[in-house]
């Protein structure tokens, strides 16, 4: 698979390590009520869908950036690649 890195262009997927579902960006608030349950769900449960899947890849053998790759897990076709930092900022994270 080739991952079209937003800064570096097409890179071999072998340069990356894989973390999993991009929902892992949305870490629950540890101080909120029901945090134990929220962290269990965050850490251990997955939607694991067929078809389109947004997932986190880390460019370990490259520029060490985290990417959010939208990929069709039924065909391995890569549909969209974004910098995870851009997505986090657009979701209201503080830089």
């Amino acid at each position: 698979m080739l991952i079209n890195h937003p800064l570096l262009g097409p890179r071999d997927a072998q340069e990356f390590t894989y973390l999993g579902d991009a929902s892992l960006l949305n870490r629950p608030d540890g101080m909120a009520g029901g945090a134990a349950q929220a962290f269990h769900d965050y850490l251990y449960l997955r939607d694991n869908p067929t078809g389109e899947h947004r997932e986190l890849w880390y460019h370990e053998q490259g520029d060490r950036s985290w990417l959010i790759v939208t990929r069709n897990v039924s065909t391995h076709e890569i549909l969209k690649v974004e910098l995870a930092s851009d997505v986090a900022l657009s979701q209201g994270a503080k830089p």
Binding site: M1, D12, A13, Q14, Y18, G20, D21, N48, T50, H53, E55, R71, V73, S74, T75, H76
Partner: peptide, 13 residues
Amino acid sequence: DGYNSYAQRGNSP
């Protein structure tokens, strides 16, 4: 292979 897949085929690496 190390990434989510339902494709029943892997990749060359």
